[in-house]
């Protein structure tokens, strides 16, 4: 790259329009990318700073995790035990997965491997439409349809319980899980299917023996993201779970979820009070759990590349 003619060197060094456009584009893209990161950090710092001082100075960690008593508004003796809330979230999310996993994997396999032409296109659009239903609408369905149905069907006094919320949440998570699972199945090269089918394997044999093993990590990721979705859902759970503090022993018990607790109580607390800060502590906990779930999903997906 050494040029002995100084005139030519100068010409090579001249910045033209493309150079400036490129620099500008780089800067804009950089700002776009960095602002997302800053925003996330900002949120984390905010939640952390509201919650951390309380965790360090006042919170009884043992009681926090092991006591089922959540009495933040008690004048004389407030207790901050989240065991019941965690049990509420876990039971509802668990039931949701029992509903959503078979539904969504079945739908994904049908759409990706069996449906053809128009059927497939229509189904894909329908699934996407389902995914777009706002959670408050799901909550409304839980409240006004599932509630009386459960009361009638099982002859119980209240229909707002683990069963209701879990079912609603399962239906809600299923479309997204279906879409992700279908993507994972679509990523399996067509050549595998063709080779297996040329051997005389039936379609189901191809799916079972070739496609599912090949798409395994993508499918696991779909389920994990569904779990994350269930964990973080607020409105629908608030409306369908009954929102009463309970360690559930049957699907017909009303429960209260972590997220719903924050949503329902934060507006009524005095900024800076203990109650206010303990709710932020819940936020940190949710943040960490969701983060771990998403990270696991991410690692599982990357696992494909390593093999």
């Amino acid at each position: 790259m050494s040029s002995r003619d100084p005139g030519q060197a100068a010409a090579l060094d001249r910045r033209d329009l493309a150079w400036y456009v490129d620099k500008l584009a780089q800067i804009l893209v950089f700002i776009g990318g960095i602002s997302g990161i800053i925003l996330i950090l900002g949120i984390f710092v905010f939640i952390g700073s509201e919650g951390l001082p309380f965790i360090v100075s006042k919170l009884n960690i043992g009681e926090f995790f092991t006591s089922p008593l959540w009495r933040p508004t008690s004048e004389a003796n407030p207790t901050y035990g989240i065991l019941a809330l965690m049990a509420g979230t876990a039971s509802v999310t668990g039931l949701a997965m029992v509903v959503a996993v078979p539904f969504s994997l079945g739908a994904a396999i049908y759409i990706a491997e069996f449906a053809r032409g128009r059927t497939r296109e229509v189904l894909k659009v329908l699934v996407e439409m389902l995914a777009a239903i706002p959670s408050v609408v799901w909550g409304f369905i839980g409240l006004s349809i599932m509630n009386p149905v459960i009361i009638k069907l099982f002859n119980v006094p209240v229909g707002l319980n683990v069963l209701n919320a879990g079912f609603i949440l399962g239906l809600m998570a299923a479309p997204i899980m279906t879409t992700i699972a279908e993507d994972a199945l679509k990523a399996v090269p067509e050549g595998y299917r063709e080779a297996a089918e040329a051997m005389g394997a039936t379609r189901w044999q191809v799916v079972r023996n070739v496609v599912l093993p090949a798409a395994k990590s993508g499918l696991v990721a779909a389920v994990l993201l569904g779990v994350g979705r269930g964990f973080g859902e607020t409105m629908a759970v608030l409306m369908a779970s009954g929102h009463s503090i309970n360690l559930p022993t049957s699907p017909f018990d009303s429960v209260r979820a972590l997220t719903a607790t924050i949503a329902a109580e934060l507006g009524e607390t005095a900024v800076g009070s203990d109650h206010y800060r303990v709710l932020f502590t819940l936020g940190i906990l949710l943040f960490l759990v969701t983060f771990v779930i998403n990270l696991t999903a991410d690692l599982v997906v990357r696992g494909i590349g390593k093999k």
Binding site: A195, A196, A198, M199, G200, A201, P213
Partner: peptide, 25 residues
């Protein structure tokens, strides 16, 4: 199809072990 073996232009090793590739059929 089971009576007919096919070899494609580009080899398609199924995403299974060597053993399972041959044992599949």
């Amino acid at each position: 199809r089971r009576r007919i073996g096919v070899v494609f232009p580009l080899p398609v090793g199924l995403p299974l072990s060597v053993y399972d590739n041959v044992a599949l059929s």
